[in-house]
């Protein structure tokens, strides 16, 4: 097991370096960081000075070597916009995104498992058809629209919750709900399908013949058997959330997380901050992948890690 984790961490490191190298090539070789980051009105002298300051006057291999060694110490350069190390900005915003994604996905897990299980008890029954319809609806609704509707109804009309911002638990409700909607739908559909499969397996009949109650069979027997595919899907949703949903949801609700920061970095041409964000997200994705594999192994002893 520790062996496996080390190997996967090493592979992950390569992936993260690959991603970062791609960013390097795209921005330094094909792009022009100076004109991206300096205002149009900058003089040639200012441009040259800036280029020298960030090392652009060096040959590309030297630049790349500096770039790599800097990354090892998490030195991505100073954010132009915030005038402090980019990684500092990222680490400051990351917990906010983690809170949002954690709350959203946590809610999705809590809602989808019972919902999917209840639907699976009578496939084609009234409850099942209702759940499936709601699921399809949930998948069809784009998040920016959902978020705006939520603001209109709960914040503007009913005034129950703040329209946007950050600070109190009330601020978390609408963004987390909005973020949770698509995962709830996808999780529920998956749990339903997997539960229907499991409930038809012979071991369920054995459990019933042993006199086990239906709630216990669902909770103890079948849930365990759908947990591995469920974890895989959750990992995928977490990655999608980190690299996609949060950009939309944080922008709609002005939630000061990484997604919003990425948008702001792009708007301001803040290349260094952008690079730091890409690096950290890539690293998170690798870590989530490893965590899911390890968790799957601990649930299903038949899984071989390699």
């Amino acid at each position: 097991m520790p062996d496996f984790i080390l190997r996967r961490l090493f592979q992950g490191l390569l992936v993260v370096l690959g991603v970062t190298a791609t960013v390097f090539v795209v921005t330094r070789v094909f792009g022009d960081p100076v004109s991206l980051m300096l205002p149009l009105s900058a003089t040639d002298a200012q441009r040259a000075a800036f280029a020298a300051q960030i090392g652009l006057d060096q040959p590309l291999p030297v630049q790349f070597w500096r770039f790599l060694t800097d990354i090892v110490t998490l030195d991505f350069g100073d954010s132009l916009w915030q005038r402090r190390p980019a990684i500092e900005v990222v680490f400051e915003r990351l917990p906010n995104t983690a809170l949002l994604v954690g709350a959203g996905l946590g809610l999705a897990v809590l809602v989808s498992i019972p919902l999917g299980a209840i639907a699976a008890l009578r496939p084609g029954g009234l409850v099942d058809r209702l759940v499936v319809s709601l699921g399809l609806l949930g998948l069809a609704m784009p998040q920016f629209w959902l978020g705006l509707m939520a603001i209109m109804v709960f914040a503007v009309q009913l005034k129950w919750l703040p329209t946007s911002g950050f600070g109190t638990a009330a601020h978390l409700v609408l963004p987390a709900l909005t973020l949770a909607m698509t995962p709830i739908a996808r999780f529920t559909m998956m749990v339903r399908a997997a539960m229907i499969d499991e409930l038809n397996k012979p071991y369920v009949q054995t459990a019933r013949a042993k006199g086990m109650s239906l709630p216990r069979i669902l909770r103890v027997h079948t849930l365990r058997n759908i947990l591995v595919p469920f974890l895989a899907l959750s990992g995928w949703e977490a990655i999608t959330a980190l690299s996609g949903y949060t950009v939309v949801v944080e922008t709609v609700f002005a939630w000061p997380g990484l997604g919003l920061t990425a948008v702001q970095a792009i708007q301001r041409g803040d290349l260094f901050l952008m690079q730091a964000i890409v690096f950290v997200i890539a690293a998170l994705i690798v870590i989530i992948g490893i965590a899911i594999d390890v968790a799957a192994k601990s649930i299903d002893p038949r899984i071989e890690l390699n």
Partner: peptide, 16 residues
């Protein structure tokens, strides 16, 4: 009243 089923390979919960 108890029962033993035909297929021992699938009649036990694989994850318990």
């Amino acid at each position: 009243v108890t029962m033993v089923f035909q297929s021992p390979m699938t009649s036990l919960n694989p994850l318990m």
